[in-house]
Design a protein around this nucleic acid. Structure first.
Lengths: 209, 209
DNA sequence: AAGGAAAACTTGACAGTGACAAGATAAAAT
DNA sequence: ATTTTATCTTGTCACTGTCAAGTTTTCCTT
């Protein structure tokens, strides 16, 4: 996995990378992430991605059979980081209500910090959901939501899926609506203060379950 | 606006449509709607749309300057029908709580009945939100949500935007998650009974505001 | 009714796309 | 050292959106 080839000390490509990239898969994912943020999923191009990674237009095919496969790999990384962000937001010393505020803030924070990734994670048409790795990353992130919901499931005695969807919808609804441009621009403006009020309100509601 | 040209009684195109379509804009919107449902927004093609409408590949340009413009027009129609669906769900004889159940059912019903339209409505990258007609259609639909929220704004004394976003998030979150394939397939299965339970739960929550 | 302007639709072209095939090169395995 | 395999390249294909230029119809003015 050395980045420089030991052969080809002065190859025909003057002062350029060796024929073999070393870790093209990684480079493509990095380039893809950048392009996704810059151009969005529309406007994304495999060829531009290959160019940015410094390889020819057909090189990606050896690491991702499809554009869908590349997107799937990108979404997998996104779910990993998303799940990690939610896990980091957990604090056993908090009350369930306080935990909601903290976790929802992390949920919305991730969506704002990585809008392209967030959109991709829920863009079913571009992803290969049969992929086991993606499924696992998604399930792991969902686990955090499940953990977050548990106190309210126990106290209310209602079915877990019901409460989990409620807990999921509350941050996801605003997150998606904001990224869709439905919040902030027109209709109602959104401020940091507004967001905090929303978090507090949702926590209160769940606490009254 | 007559559909058949009065001239060209036996034109060179044997038994075919006249040179002028009559209402190509309408035909393109209809064909576009079908294609959107069949192929999704990815996989959609202007040329395929033109072909289905029975015109040449460059004909759409005279009615929609862009692909974005066509999508914008389609989304406008979608918002119109969406707003109408929400308006139809209104019933002055219902209590605010009952009205929530009814309207949320309509919200989710629309998303399920017209998934392609619903996705397009919130696909900001594909739409031209500077378009006044689209903005107006969106605002009109939002008005229904505003109307639905009013009783809870009054009774709780909380800021309107806050409650409106809460009321919006509750059905929108599930709707989007379901269309994103996050509900139903993996994780928690979703049934009609589940949906009704969810509606009832959200209505109770809002009633306790 | 006639003729000129405008609108609606056509064909043709261009650069860019994802995907595939076949060849070149480097690394790994034997 | 030789063969096999993985990696990357060039070349090509059908298809895309958009623009330009030409053709056909309708509309507007007189």
């Amino acid at each position: 996995m050395n980045r420089k080839s030991r052969h080809n000390t002065e190859g025909k490509l003057s002062a350029k990378r060796p024929y073999h990239h070393g870790d093209l898969r990684r480079a493509l994912l990095d380039a893809g992430r950048e392009l996704l943020e810059e151009k969005g999923a529309d406007g994304f191009s495999l060829r531009a991605c290959a160019l940015r990674a410094g390889v020819s237009h057909a090189a990606p095919a050896h690491h991702f059979k499809d554009m869908k496969a590349l997107f799937t790999a990108l979404a997998t990384e996104a779910f990993d980081l998303f799940g990690q962000a939610l896990a980091d937001a957990r604090d056993e010393s908090l009350t369930p209500k306080q935990q909601i505020v903290t976790s929802f803030r992390a949920y919305l924070g991730f969506a704002r910090a990585h809008p392209a990734w967030f959109k991709l994670m829920f863009d079913s048409a571009r992803l290969e959901w049969h992929d086991e790795v993606l499924k696992e990353a998604g399930a792991k992130a969902y686990e955090q939501l499940s953990l977050l919901s548990k106190p309210f499931i126990d106290s209310s005695g209602k079915p877990a899926p019901l409460i989990e969807m409620l807990v999921w919808s509350l941050p996801h609804g605003v997150a998606h609506l904001e990224l869709a441009g439905q919040i902030g621009c027109d209709y109602a403006p959104i401020s940091d203060q507004w967001l905090e009020d929303y978090l507090k309100l949702t926590a209160e509601l769940l606490d009254r379950l």
